[in-house]
């Protein structure tokens, strides 16, 4: 199980690097979307690993809410050049 979490962390490093080096805001947003999904799945894995119901609930909530915040931010960024 530890190896799985290490591999997931490695997969998480790719979008973090992408967010660091890219100049285009939408590519950064893509990296953010990827990171939000990956971290919440990692929280779920940890909750199953420890058999902790409470952490699992938080993981599911973050999974659904993090995406909502992304959509809000995308719409605000889209309207940046209008008005």
């Amino acid at each position: 199980m530890n190896g799985i979490l290490i591999a997931m962390t490695l997969a998480l490093l790719i979008p973090i690097y992408e967010a660091w080096q890219d100049e285009d805001i939408w590519q950064t947003m893509l990296a953010f979307a990827s990171i939000a999904t990956k971290t919440s799945i990692m929280i779920l894995v940890v909750s199953v690993l420890r058999d902790d119901w409470m952490i699992g609930l938080v993981g599911v909530l973050i999974l659904s809410v993090g995406n909502a915040s992304l959509m809000l931010l995308a719409h605000v960024l889209r309207r940046m050049n209008e008005l």
Partner: peptide, 22 residues
């Protein structure tokens, strides 16, 4: 604007770390 998006990334990672510590 990039800093805002990266703030979101920091938030996601911070939530992961907090959940990891229980």
């Amino acid at each position: 604007y990039h800093a805002l998006v990266i703030r979101g990334i920091v938030g996601a990672v911070a939530a992961l770390v907090y959940a990891l510590f229980g």
